[in-house]
């Protein structure tokens, strides 16, 4: 993720000292573990040495960023343009790291969203080198230079890399994204337990971080603003497939999804599945909901 590789040398030194104190005989398994640890330590030290050497020689090693700029409130910035930033490269640097460096060092007006820096908060989905990715989860070493950073396509740009997410949130809310069981347990404090199998079924769908990458990649959502879009449908999947909610609630959820602009608009282009930073099999979930909807309709006939 976004954390820099720490200076490891000092740490390993102190560790080595403490290891020596173990003089009593060890169980074979423990010995094996110790040996592995020692090997790993040697590996780390070797890597740290290499990195130090690289740092010493490659001081002028920079990354070239081309960043989309636009500010409606400042005259002269209302015409969108690309700014170039040359950021000193450090091993393990992500696109977000580079943007933060550029903002803190070169241009404090450079605007973008970020928070946790570890692919959990979902605020830094960006269009990087022609693809929706999380800035904090994308290593600069994986990208061709110059690295082109743009705000998410198919959303209104507010400023620089910040887009209006309102419509996305509306779509998410349209599927009623909260647990709501038909029947509640008798005791107020009773738990509503889920079977392991059922949990496994919805597991991937619970991973969504509301970053909007899928929605931005979807060709249909781009052309048709009323289409619920992959994120919202996946959210609905998470609850519709949850057996604890009961059949009535599930039917209600399917009724929302089988509207004209619900699941049927999905054209199985797999764009959303490709870009999802949390590897959610979105297309698979949408397809399953289509089949569920058809099945429940056939039952009605």
């Amino acid at each position: 993720m976004s954390t820099h590789v720490p200076e490891t040398e000092t740490e390993t030194d102190t560790e080595a000292e403490t290891e020596v104190e173990h003089s009593e005989p060890l169980a074979p398994a423990q010995e094996e573990r110790m040996r592995k640890k020692a090997e790993a330590r040697a590996d780390r030290e070797e890597r740290a040495r290499q990195e130090a050497a690289e740092r010493a020689t490659g001081d002028d090693d920079t990354v070239h960023l081309k960043v989309f700029r636009f500010d409606p409130e400042v005259e002269g910035k209302q015409e969108p343009r690309f700014d170039d930033f040359h950021v000193p490269y450090e091993k393990g640097m992500t696109v977000l790291d580079a943007l933060i460096y550029a903002r803190d060092t070169f241009d404090s007006s450079l605007t973008f969203r970020h928070s946790c820096r570890q692919a959990i908060c979902g605020s830094d989905a960006l269009f990087i080198n022609g693809r929706q990715r999380l800035g904090c989860k994308t290593q600069l070493s994986d990208l061709d230079q110059p690295v082109r950073v743009e705000p998410l396509p198919h959303a209104e740009v507010e400023k620089d890399l910040v887009v209006d997410m309102d419509h996305f949130y509306d779509q998410m809310e349209a599927v009623e994204p909260y647990f709501d069981a038909d029947e509640l347990p008798d005791g107020e404090l009773d738990e509503q337990r889920q079977t392991r199998e059922n949990r496994e079924k919805v597991k991937m769908s619970t991973r969504c971080i509301w970053c909007g990458a899928c929605m931005s990649s979807c060709n249909i959502a781009a052309g048709n603003n009323e289409y619920l879009g992959p994120a919202a449908i996946n959210k609905a999947y998470r609850f519709a497939m949850d057996e604890r909610e009961g059949t009535e609630r599930k039917q209600h959820r399917l009724n929302i999804l089988e509207q004209e602009n619900g699941v049927w608009r999905c054209q199985t282009q797999f764009s959303c599945t490709e870009v999802c930073p949390k590897d959610i099999p979105l297309t698979e979930h949408i397809q399953e909901l289509k089949r569920e909807a058809v099945k429940s309709n056939l039952k009605f006939w």
Partner: peptide, 12 residues
């Protein structure tokens, strides 16, 4: 929001 999508013509 749901009422926005109620076209009563399910495409299923």
């Amino acid at each position: 929001m749901a009422e926005r999508y109620s076209s009563f013509e399910p495409g299923g």
